[in-house]
Design a protein around this nucleic acid. Structure first.
Lengths: 186, 186
DNA sequence: GCGATAGCCATACGGTGTATGGCTACGTCC
DNA sequence: GGACGTAGCCATACACCGTATGGCTATCGC
């Protein structure tokens, strides 16, 4: 009802989210403004507020849109070391695709919520197979996540392997080795 | 010359930096605005621009002010494991004191510059004593820094040990153990 | 037909960083 | 002592931001 005069079809949350995500991909989180987003969507800025509560809710939603695009490896049967490595690689690919947004998540963990979503569902069984006692798995997962997220954000925004991507790959591999070696397993 | 009508003395960079740092301590980086800072200093906003180039330069400077306050442990003679642990603790204390600013540095590494400053001067000899070959020390240091920074930022802004600080301490200790165990040393 | 309502939009408010240019008081030189 | 440069400060203005408020219109169920 009452479709925009300039557009043919009404706005949809999906359209808003994917367009916002595109803006963030192109210019970082700080390049996302409600006004710019509205301009791209050819709509009045205030129209957006009929579909999203406010800007932080929008960012939260596109974070989850992004997390939903995470292609999680699923190779039960492989040894846990290999599955952990695959998961770490998937995580890194995701960060490399949306570096700015991932840095945002890293410093605004409330944007994605607590331990729900794909990563944790994959990580916990891996830790179980690695012999981490159940009562330690949550904190172990937090430590690993902190390690990996910190490393990848540093790599992406910092200077690790700035001029030699292969070097960055090697560093990342070494880091995963460190983690596997350091995990408390029998 | 031409001192402010409202204030007795002219502005100094030190005054600006420490006041800005105080604002950041109290309300996070996003609570720092040139106008608020000017109001606290009882000065016109534009007067600040005679002492700092712009806001990002100001943040950069207060990052270095903060880094200068890092009390670095200096205990040569101790085994490298202990010195690494002490350094990690010093780092964590610093993050806990300025969590918001440190999160900013973590995602804006250009604010502090490349590998200069106290931490690296302490870390490199430790890695040397740990047997890390010279050509690997820079990247190893980057990995360790990424690990620790990520973990501490996660801990501080996330939920590790939210209701039990002692638990957070234990997690951190375990994480350091993991790092020490994982370091390539003979 | 009619009221409810979903969707959209115009306007406005208070906030931001900072470009521009003008004022004043001091230091330095003739 | 007078002229001048300039350091420090400030008023104004611009373009942007997020969003509260309230009104318009087209569609739906009745």
């Amino acid at each position: 009802m009452a479709v925009s005069a300039r557009r043919g079809a009404p706005l949809t949350p999906e359209e808003i989210h994917s367009t916002a995500l595109r803006l963030v991909e192109e210019g970082g989180v700080e390049a996302l403004s409600m006004r710019k987003l509205a301009a791209v969507l050819d709509v009045n800025p205030m129209s957006l507020y009929h579909h999203v509560a406010n800007k932080t809710a929008l960012i939260s939603q596109i974070c989850q849109t992004m997390a939903g695009r995470l292609a999680l490896p699923d190779n039960p049967g492989s040894p846990w070391q290999e599955r952990l490595r695959d998961l770490a690689h998937a995580y890194r690919r995701m960060v490399q695709r949306y570096p700015s947004l991932w840095a945002y998540i890293h410093t605004h963990p409330e944007a994605v919520g607590d331990h729900q979503g794909g990563i944790w569902d994959v990580l916990f069984p891996i830790l179980a197979d690695a012999g981490v006692p159940e009562e330690e798995r949550t904190t172990t997962a937090d430590v690993l996540h902190g390690f990996v997220a910190g490393l990848v954000v540093t790599e992406r925004q910092g200077h690790i392997g700035r001029d030699d991507p292969a070097q960055a790959d090697r560093v990342y591999e070494t880091a995963i080795d460190m983690i596997i070696r350091g995990l408390p397993h029998p």
